[in-house]
Amino acid sequence: MSTHAAHTVAVRTHGVDMFFGDGETKVTALKQADFEANRGELIMLVGPSGCGKTTLLSVIAGTLTPQTGTVEVFGQRLDGLSQEELTTFRRKHLGFVFQSFNLIPTLTVLENVMVPLLIQGAAHDEAVAKARAMLEKVGLKGREYGQPNALSGGQQQRVAIARALVHEPSLLICDEPTSALDKDTGAQIMQMVRDLSRSPERCVVVVTHDHRIFRFADRIAEMEDGRIRRVVEDASLLDTNHL
């Protein structure tokens, strides 16, 4: 990946087709989807339900392998990689923020944040130190040993962001990060994502329906029927009623 350091494109998909099932039950999720996201950029994927946003996000995250087309993330071609190689790639380079937080309720806040580090094979003490530091960054110092369920929705999403960034991934994938949050909390969360991800070595892809957070995007890619319809920098150019 270092050979691509000067390259500005962080994520690129080209001619990606993705369908599920076959025969009469065949559903086409992506049709020749071409997408690009740059380093240091926060880009949002928007569009109506069923347009293929989540499928494209899964393809970029390496959790789904497209039938055709190429997928490149920070210079690494994902299409053609084995499941094991994809798993290793995700472990090293990807961070995830999920719609429903996916914090493990039986673990403490600190332990939840330690998970990506431990998956990478970090020593326990090192993982504790890094997780603590990250929780401090997201404003949750003193909450380390509480259970996630004891936190508010906004606080839980902050824990999720800490977990997504603690191992310093290149690509941060956010799936509807504000859908379970009120307007102000959602704005705070997006501001935090934006601040923490501002780095030329990082890219943030956010899938969202929430037009209240469009202003945090550097660019917005609008999807329709399994392909990118257009990419805009100004959210006001989008027809939010259509989304």
């Binding site: 790639f89 995830f96 996916n102 990478q120």
Partner: peptide, 13 residues
């Protein structure tokens, strides 16, 4: 299950 799926997505084999 959903937490194990999340752990898988995060890169646990």
């Amino acid at each position: 299950l959903k937490y194990f799926a999340a752990i898988k997505a995060m890169g646990a084999g």
